[in-house]
Deep mutational scan, measured.
Amino acid sequence: EDYYQILGVPRNASQKEIKKAYYQLAKKYHPDTNKDDPKAKEKFSQLAEAYEVLSDEVKRKQYDA
């Protein structure tokens, strides 16, 4: 799945936009606030993985290549 789609940001998003999108979605899908939703944990880990790659310039360049 596309990391940009997961975070809901365009491919040319700035680091600030990526961070903002991640924090909004992380708050929304955090397992502690969605105890009754088994998919929230999965969504949250996808968000974390996408953010880890896109927030790191080197990893992001490799991902975009």
Rank of each mutant, 00 (worst) to 15 (best):
K35W: 09
Q24Y: 15
K28N: 09
R60D: 02
K43T: 07
Y23S: 14
I6K: 05
S14C: 07
D64C: 02
Y3W: 06
Q46S: 10
Y51K: 02
V58S: 10
Q5E: 12
K39Q: 11
Q5N: 10
Y63L: 03
V53R: 02
F44R: 08
S55P: 00
K61C: 09
Y23E: 15
A65K: 12
K43D: 04
D2C: 07
K20P: 01
A13M: 02
Q62Y: 08
Y3M: 03
K20Q: 15
Y63H: 04
E1L: 15
K20E: 15
A50G: 02
Y51E: 01
Y4Q: 00
K28I: 13
S14R: 06
I6T: 07
N34I: 14
Y63I: 04
D56F: 02
V9N: 00
K39F: 12
E17N: 06
E57C: 08
P38V: 12
K61G: 08
E42L: 11
K59G: 03
Y22V: 02
H30T: 05
A26V: 13
V9L: 07
G8E: 07
Q15P: 13
Y4P: 00
D64H: 02
P10L: 08
Y3D: 00
D36P: 07
K28E: 12
L47H: 02
Y23G: 14
K39N: 14
E49A: 12
K41I: 12
P10R: 09
Q24L: 14
Y63E: 03
K59Q: 06
A13N: 00
E17T: 12
Y23P: 03
D64N: 03
N12P: 02
N12D: 13
L7T: 01
A65L: 10
I18F: 02
A13H: 01
L54P: 00
N12V: 05
Y29A: 07
K27A: 15
P38H: 08
P31I: 05
V53W: 05
Q62W: 12
F44E: 04
S55C: 05
N12G: 05
N34L: 11
Q24P: 06
Y22F: 14
V9H: 00
E17D: 13
V58I: 13
K43C: 09
E49G: 08
E42F: 12
K39A: 14
P10Y: 05
Q46E: 09
Q5M: 13
Q5W: 12
Q46D: 06
Y22I: 02
S55I: 06
Y29P: 03
A13F: 02
D36W: 11
P38E: 11
Y23H: 14
E52N: 10
V9A: 02
L7D: 00
A21S: 05
D37G: 05
G8K: 07
N34T: 10
Q62K: 09
T33Q: 13
